[in-house]
Amino acid sequence: MSLFTGTASYYRQFRPGIPEDVAECLGQAAPSRTGGRRRLLDVGTGTGLVAEALLGRFDDIIAIDNDADMLVAAESVLRSKLPESTRLLLVESTAEDFVPPVEWKADLVTICRAFHWLDQAAVLVLLEDQVAPDGVVAIFGDSSFWTATSPWKEAVRDVIKSFLGEERRAGSGTFQHHNRPYSEIMEESPFGQVEEARIPVHRTWTAEDILGYLSSTSFAAPHLFGDRLPEFETAVKERLTDFSEDDTFPEENEFLIRFGRRSRR
């Protein structure tokens, strides 16, 4: 069972998308192709937020995820927005099991908000044969509600803990923390030449947005609460009233992008 079983509709509606500044940074990092097709491999695509943001910058896109419901949601959105000359292939697969078409090599691999779920070193080794010689691997994401430090987010996290326990949930189990910086892991991989970019982002949430976002996560998915879900939602709304009189909750966040390239010889 996927860690995100039952969350696809919430994920598509309430997960923040990829800002234009982030999409521009990703697009510029990948090599250009004069007269050739520019290829994108999006790993852990979910409902296709990254692929959607990069439409028009790549004309041959493969997006993979191991959750069939997520891919259905991605298909419903991406297909209608696809430029006429762009090819899109959605594949139900884990990153560890994915095999691209013969001779297909990515110019850019994107792994957004998903690297912590992967066998990280193994996936980077597998990508050695899936990425063009001058291609780039981009591992990136912003802070989730669980790790953020703003007062209202901390309050929401406390409510979650009061219902589900102190340890961060991950579906039916608990989240296994990775203590090593991603840059170190990348530096030991075939893509050991690593550069970082940081792009700030400002958002404003409502209580409905926050509850929808939580329903899209592995640590607060609706099924985890069982018949206590209405009680949990009421508790979150009541706690949030301590931080806003007009149902607006500002967030200052940041996308950290790590670009990995093969070391120059």
Score class of each variant (00 low, 15 high):
A197S: 07
R258N: 13
I62Y: 15
D158K: 11
F115D: 03
G226T: 02
E252V: 10
L108V: 07
V156S: 02
V72D: 14
D107N: 14
L118Y: 11
P230I: 06
A8G: 05
F175M: 09
Q28I: 05
P200A: 09
R239E: 15
A148F: 01
V125Y: 08
I257K: 03
L224Q: 03
L164W: 15
I64T: 09
L82F: 07
R38K: 15
T110Q: 10
A23F: 05
S80I: 10
R87W: 07
L256A: 14
V123L: 13
D59E: 14
G44D: 11
D246P: 08
R38S: 04
V159G: 09
T174N: 12
R203K: 15
R262A: 12
F58M: 09
A221Y: 06
Y213D: 01
T34L: 14
D67N: 15
L211H: 01
I18C: 06
S244A: 08
D119R: 08
R261A: 09
A121N: 02
L26Y: 08
D67Y: 01
A74M: 00
T94R: 15
G226N: 13
R239W: 02
L26E: 07
S80F: 08
L54F: 00
F259T: 06
H116S: 09
E52A: 10
S143Y: 14
G260L: 00
A197K: 15
